[in-house]
Design a protein around this nucleic acid. Structure first.
Lengths: 220, 220
DNA sequence: CGCTATATGATAAATATTTCACATAATAAT
DNA sequence: ATTATTATGTGAAATATTTATCATATAGCG
């Protein structure tokens, strides 16, 4: 057995980012005779074969069989378990604009063990309404509600101007991890985790990569 | 001068991901007397001081002044230039559901040198309508339109089931880079760049980090 | 039943990225 | 002016991550 002390190993961030991709691939892997091999996955996903093998070794509970590979279904379960998709985590959203609504309505979160319970807004017209069956409450209630329900994940989809203010409210409510869509740097105490998700920046990175690739082509 | 051969240096992906964060920070940096220093940024953003210094050195056209730092406005311009926010790139979206609409309406893309021209849909009810002033056309027209307008960035916000099909249409239309929100692995030829953006997975990663942190706290 | 092809798992090498440590430059205060 | 302080920039060390190599195992086939 390879992974006795799994939890004490440091899991690299990159691995963590690859695992969902494996999961997507495996779930849509059609010609499954029940097994997949690392070289197989590697070539389909254009990754290094050894890397895939190591990644799988890090999460697989059973290991693979030489010449055969890994049992697909088991592997999917192992990755899901590893990523904690079996624990349900509860989250709230601040900001019920277009992006906030999209996230509130995004049903796939549940597959990942995540449940967005409700939204918070400052816009009077939205308070009291429902989006995708989820209540929209006044932003002022955020700290109390989070505290009472013991929610520790917050999603910020408000405009940059009010993001810090909302962030402070979340922290007051005991939120421990924030997924921040506002294009602004948030100041938080040490114990709070922030993951930034600036959409515009992500797209910009893509276009930057593209431009580089085109330039390289010209050079040759 | 430090960066004579800037363009021939390999820019690390991590740097590319940090630059937009610097930009956000700098743009909202209030008590600007006109200058910022690397140690300053580092402590505010909780990064290593040397890393910030190296990052800035890689993009700054003028360099910094000892004891003073970098001219804030110039630095902002340098980062924007470096990221290509001055070149306008055009893109299209396939899928005008909630997420697609949110992106179509997201005005900040323009600040990043990105322009989303229109959306494509298969849903008859949406075809012919406008979202945020942008036309929604039939998905069947995608290849032609892209080819004719010479657009090379495509954004996929359709359900996983139809993502590959849409992807193929984009490739047929000469799209070179794809920003994929569908939770599925896309098969593309070598020359096409795919950046995956599985929202659910991103949030899952956040919650995984959080759980690890909580576990570590328990161990101690 | 042995041979071949292919996959795993592990150790080692190569890369990439981050951090440290120090030499140098410029500001501000005595 | 001289000195203390603080920032830059850079080469070297330390880490982290990816890739290469190889020994071992097993399924399938003659």
């Amino acid at each position: 057995m390879t992974n006795k002390h799994k939890s004490s190993y440091a899991i690299s961030k990159q691995l963590l980012q690859r695992l969902p991709l494996y999961l997507n691939f495996l779930k849509n892997y059609a010609d499954k005779d029940g097994y997949v091999s690392a070289p197989m996955i590697a070539s389909a996903m254009r990754l290094n074969e050894v890397q895939v093998r190591k990644d799988l070794a890090a999460v697989s509970s059973t290991g693979g069989k030489p010449k055969t590979g890994f049992a697909t279904e088991q592997l999917i379960r192992d990755i899901e378990k590893f990523l904690g998709y079996d624990n349900v985590d509860e989250a709230v959203i601040a900001g019920a604009g277009r992006l906030g609504s999209a996230l509130l309505a995004y049903s796939r979160f549940s597959e990942y063990g995540l449940k967005i319970l409700m939204g918070f807004e400052s816009d009077e017209k939205l308070i009291g309404t429902e989006i995708a069956g989820k209540q929209i409450l006044s932003i002022d209630k955020l700290p109390d509600v989070c505290k009472r329900l013991n929610i520790h994940i917050g999603i910020i989809t408000v405009p940059a101007e009010s993001a810090q203010e909302v962030c402070d409210k979340m922290i007051a409510g005991g939120i421990q991890a924030i997924w921040n869509f506002a294009p602004i740097h948030l100041n938080v105490p040490d114990h709070v985790l922030v993951q930034n998700q600036d959409m515009a920046a992500s797209l910009a990175i893509l276009s930057k990569h593209l431009r580089e690739k085109l330039e390289k082509k010209e050079e040759v």
